[in-house]
């Protein structure tokens, strides 16, 4: 379990990183936390000739508040999200989810940019990004552009990233004060990917759901926004029948793979359960 040989680059600026990646082409991979890429390299399932380490690019770091938007640099680690007062205040669901990613050591290295950009359907952050209506800022040889999280994921490990492009930051509109949120993740043990997980952000008005978004993790080759399920609960007080209806609507769009976490019918079933539990917990938190 030894990685194949590669050349190592450590650019100090975003421009240099983008230029390196453009010049080196398909043989190069950006290196963020490395906790997905390095194990793949050890198995020689990934054999990049060049690694472009992004750790020295200051522009990719930090959590900033601009008006009603939080901008998170791609190289912000899960650990930094967990200790950020800004995130605790404005986007607590990110902390709830980050605490369920991998394990403490991995969270010191693993970055939000890597988590959302590598297109692994098992990653937790993408579904949250869709639920929160995040936009991803991409930088490449053709300049900079923004892509909505909801438009970003095209298939397992296939995203809107063009060759040579990297994700530089994530902008997330701050949900209204008093919003309810929950990330329900069923996993076999610490360090595992979700057997099924659901992210919910909602607002309540007069005891009824006013707005709602539901995201699903590891239940399809891409993260999913369960729009029909969300629509089914809006205007309701989340009675038992409505919850079941939402779960059914969510299950209708799930297409997980059978794996050691369980057969398809189980993963879909618990996907529905996660949706119901996330809705209930989110509603309980909303004020």
């Amino acid at each position: 379990m030894i990685p194949g040989p590669f050349s190592y680059h450590r650019p100090a600026s975003l421009a240099d990183a983008v230029k390196l990646l453009a010049d080196l082409g398909d043989d190069a991979r950006p290196l963020a936390g490395g906790h997905s890429l390095v194990p793949m390299m050890k198995l020689r399932l990934a054999t990049p000739a060049h690694l472009v380490d992004l750790h020295d690019v200051a522009d990719l770091k930090g959590i900033r508040h601009y008006g009603s938007t939080i901008v998170i640099g791609a190289m912000t680690t899960q650990h930094e999200l967990l200790v950020s007062g800004e995130i605790r205040q404005s986007l607590p669901i990110l902390q709830e989810a980050a605490a369920l990613i991998a394990d403490p050591q991995v969270r010191y290295r693993g970055t939000i940019g890597g988590n959302v950009a590598n297109g692994d359907p098992g990653n937790d952050m993408p579904a949250l990004m869709m639920v929160l209506g995040a936009n991803f800022r991409l930088s490449g040889p053709g300049g900079e552009r923004e892509v909505a999280a909801s438009e970003f994921y095209q298939g397992a490990y296939f995203t809107a990233l063009e060759p040579g492009e990297i994700l530089t930051s994530i902008s997330i509109p701050v949900p209204p004060a008093g919003h309810g949120y929950a990330y329900e993740k069923l996993k076999r043990k610490v360090g595992d990917y979700a057997t099924a997980a659901a992210a919910v952000v909602l607002t309540m008005a007069g005891g009824k759901v006013a707005t709602c978004a539901i995201g699903l993790t590891n239940l399809h080759e891409t993260p999913l926004l369960a729009t029909d399920a969300a629509n089914a609960v809006i205007g309701t007080s989340l009675d038992a029948a409505t919850l079941k209806q939402a779960a059914a609507a969510a299950e209708a769009i799930m297409a997980p793979a059978a794996d050691t976490r369980g057969p398809v019918e189980y993963r879909k079933h618990v996907g529905g359960i996660m949706v119901m539990r996330a809705l209930q917990r989110a509603a309980g938190r909303a004020v």
């Binding site: 394990d103 076999r188 043990k189 610490v190 360090g191 595992d192 794996d259 050691t260």
Partner: peptide, 16 residues
């Protein structure tokens, strides 16, 4: 073998 690493071969942590 479908359980050939510590991802799929159940090794409980202090949490479980």
């Amino acid at each position: 073998v479908v359980t050939g690493s510590f991802m799929d071969f159940f090794m409980p942590t202090a949490v479980e």
